[in-house]
Amino acid sequence: MQFTSTPRGARLARRLVSYRLSDWAHPYASAVNETVTLIAAELTANAVRHGHVPGRDFRLSLSATETTVRIEVSDTRTERVPLLSAQEPPGDAESGRGLLLVSRLASRWAVAPREAAPGKTVWAELDVAQSG
């Protein structure tokens, strides 16, 4: 789905992820739902804060197999690619922990160029068996 690149768009995307996971037999209070929803919150917030291009939306894709849930968040900002080696920010920093959380919660995550469009896709996967 496509969302406006605003805090409201990020909030709606996060809610959609939680709702869809519940439909897919991962109830709201389950570890899978809570973990993937938190990952979605971080990735969509980053798309709004760091990937925003005026007049452009971000896209979210959610898919699942019996063993894995995958979330992809794409924005149109090509030049701002997150580092895969997320490091702990200084203790008094007010931001900079989002991708650190993603790296610790997700089984795998990475950044890839967006296919057939400018920008990038940040994706994360959660192995369902690990978080059950």
Rank of each mutant, 00 (worst) to 15 (best):
M1N: 06
T6W: 04
P7N: 05
P7E: 04
R8C: 00
R11G: 10
R11S: 14
R15V: 04
L16D: 13
L16Y: 08
D23T: 04
D23G: 10
W24K: 06
H26K: 09
Y28A: 15
T37C: 08
T37R: 14
I39Q: 03
R49W: 00
G51R: 02
H52R: 09
P54K: 03
G55K: 00
F58V: 08
L60V: 15
L62S: 07
A64S: 14
E66K: 13
T68M: 05
V69F: 01
V69I: 15
V69C: 06
R70G: 04
R70M: 12
I71S: 09
E72G: 07
S74C: 05
R80D: 09
V81M: 11
S85L: 13
E88C: 12
P89I: 11
S95R: 09
G98L: 12
L100K: 04
L100M: 09
L101T: 15
L101N: 13
V102T: 02
R104H: 14
S107A: 08
S107C: 08
R108M: 12
W109G: 08
A110W: 01
P113F: 13
R114M: 01
P118N: 09
G119S: 03
K120H: 09
K120E: 06
K120S: 07
T121E: 00
A124Y: 11
L126F: 09
L126S: 02
D127P: 04
A129T: 14
Q130N: 08
S131N: 13
